[in-house]
Design a protein around this nucleic acid. Sequence first.
DNA 1: TTAGTATGCAAGCAATTACTTGCACACGAC
DNA 2: GTCGTGTGCAAGTAATTGCTTGCATACTAA
Lengths: 201, 201
Amino acid sequence: MTAPTREQILSAAARLYGEHGFRGTTTRAVAEAAGVNEVTLFRIFGSKENLIVEAMRAHGVPVDVGTLPAEPDDPERELTAWATQSRQVLLSMRSMIIQAMSDAEQHPEMPKCVAKGGEAAYEAIRAYFGRLRDAGFIPADTDVHGAGSLLIGALFHDVMSRGVMPQAFPPAADAPATYARLTLRALGFDAHVRKARRRAS
Amino acid sequence: MTAPTREQILSAAARLYGEHGFRGTTTRAVAEAAGVNEVTLFRIFGSKENLIVEAMRAHGVPVDVGTLPAEPDDPERELTAWATQSRQVLLSMRSMIIQAMSDAEQHPEMPKCVAKGGEAAYEAIRAYFGRLRDAGFIPADTDVHGAGSLLIGALFHDVMSRGVMPQAFPPAADAPATYARLTLRALGFDAHVRKARRRAS
DNA sequence: TTAGTATGCAAGCAATTACTTGCACACGAC
DNA sequence: GTCGTGTGCAAGTAATTGCTTGCATACTAA
């Protein structure tokens, strides 16, 4: 099989899967969207199941989860930037995440493909919060584990549910900053600590 | 149509919808699960679409969202209890919420049925946080709006994603208490404030 | 040139599925 | 008794869908 053909099919399949889920994604539709004959799908991938799984493996995980500085300087600004970026990535994956969750019973591999991004994001902030603690921005006895869940949960829920209950969220433009600020406060970080450390450094 | 028959069908349809979504819920399966002939479905509800929508209207919204005291006394305990309760309700609706979100494009009414519970929960904590503020438990300039989103987001994400990425959450037993404690800290509530107010009252 | 490979096209098959029709049966109200 | 109502049952229809087969065509490497 030539590479471009295979890639056309995979990306078409991933897109349609996000829109219609497993059952709703017909092999005919994938073929048409990829500009390819339906028979070609089966020749290359063997079955619909295999095709969709391959498509998720190829397009289900975002390439880059947001970056956080190795040496924290301005936690509120840095965390806001990360939250904004992560929210954007989540938003672009929203429909695929939902479909993968809804197909979990019949096709357990799918949510696993999507979960990797979440795990990576969680590891990233947990490590960053650890750095904040080591650098003295937040108290030593802080629950960085729970705070990470809190922030990611807020971003996740925001992306998933804002569409159906907008009044339960801060205005979209302020949301990442709000979540970042509140999470930092939950971690024991406030203006006084920051000032103190800045003076010291 | 006799009431028991209708109710059997609706609850069977709601259950199967939660397990398999719209496309996966066949009228044959609903009829069999309800112990009723398939033709009866169409005689009563006219179409599959109408049947499922009715089922969601009847079983898609939880009867009681957790209660929060009108006069706050011990915020951490009260909020933990509420979070525990709400998490349980969310958990029982998990599959239906996911399917409703995944069917949103083709059937926009469905997520609306489910969203009502979320809106009510959000209103409940926001009001409670307002009471905490009025009672002096937390500073007057606190962002009760954002804190509500934060807490509900953590619970939502916990319920939706713990299954696929368990290491990104506190142990299930501690989770509601953790989220409640951190949210209160984000609100500016800590032991000192509580002690001070207790002495005063 | 030749052989192999990748793809297209036309057709079809078997299973599923939403929905219909026609008829029979039971039961309660009058 | 009888009449209307709610239900069951058997059968069927038209559309969709995953997947296959047979054959033709284009391109590439030896």
